[in-house]
């Protein structure tokens, strides 16, 4: 099954990582979309490193990142610098969506 995780705060980095790894270990796919203050976690290598996990796809809202002045240097190439279109796709494709 597919789990969508909308990350719109920077308060639950450990939970983003823990839930993603647990889901993958159980054979699920995970789609992560980061926006608003959740984009502050783009500076957290434990979070961005999830993009290297098999079965995980990640995107972030470029508009939010620009508004927050977040540098895109060092963000893994596997992360899609995207838009709310990616959020819509996640909600369409995922069997369950949680917000952190």
């Amino acid at each position: 099954m597919k789990l969508g995780i909308l990350v719109n705060t920077d308060r639950h980095a450990n939970d983003v990582v823990g839930l993603t790894k647990a889901a993958v270990s159980k054979g699920h796919e995970v789609i992560i979309f980061m926006m608003d203050s959740g984009n502050k976690l783009l500076e957290n290598s434990s979070v961005t490193g999830l993009s290297n996990e098999a079965g995980v796809s990640m995107a972030f809202c470029d508009h939010s990142a620009q508004k927050l002045g977040i540098s895109k240097e060092g963000i893994p190439g596997k992360m899609n610098c995207g838009s709310q279109f990616d959020n819509a796709n996640m909600n369409s494709q995922a069997d369950r969506v949680i917000v952190l």
Partner: peptide
């Protein structure tokens, strides 16, 4: 409550065993 969830694995099982999830 997220802070009292037990293991992440058990929370994943709960998420997929329910029809709807609200955060």
């Amino acid at each position: 409550e997220l802070s009292k969830k037990g293991s992440y694995e058990s929370l994943i099982d709960e998420i997929f065993s329910h029809d709807k999830v609200v955060s």
